[in-house]
Amino acid sequence: MENKNSHIKKEGFKIPENYFENFEERLMHTIANEKVPDFPKETGFKIPDTYFEDVEIDILAKISSENVKPIRKISWVKRFNYIAGSVAAIIIVALGINSIFNGNNEINTLTATDIENSIEAGYLPISSYDVGEAFSDDIATITMTNSNELSEDDIINYLSVYNITQEEE
């Protein structure tokens, strides 16, 4: 059998013959015969006078209360409401799932133009006030500009600020 430790470089060091063969045995013998430490055997922990009598009563009381689990009585009216509610919830969920899997979800087929047309026609109740309220923080940083008024210097300045360069072909 190949020696598992054959990869270890000896580098000139030597060990007594059979050193590793009984190493574990000798180590365990040393540990087993170690002298008993000279620490106190008492911990100094105390307990209330009748603790062990009391705790037994407490534990057994807890266990017997676990055995007697209260049975909740539900009236017929409440029971009917629970059943009716559950049936209604199941129908709603089933219809929802059916609608999604059958591709009837019209939102998926809407295009951006459809949405724009709807807003312009007044079908969606969104006003500029609503938009302003929703993006009030962003609007504060927006400056409206007319692209016709931009000078060449403005454009060069903008390109250099945003590090936009012409791609080499």
Binding site: F39, P40, E42, T43, G44, F45, K46, I47, P48
Partner: peptide, 14 residues
């Protein structure tokens, strides 16, 4: 702790 009455050495050991 009222339920500890150990000596100094017992406390040190703990």
């Amino acid at each position: 702790d009222v339920y500890f009455e150990g000596s100094d050495i017992q406390l040190k050991l703990q």
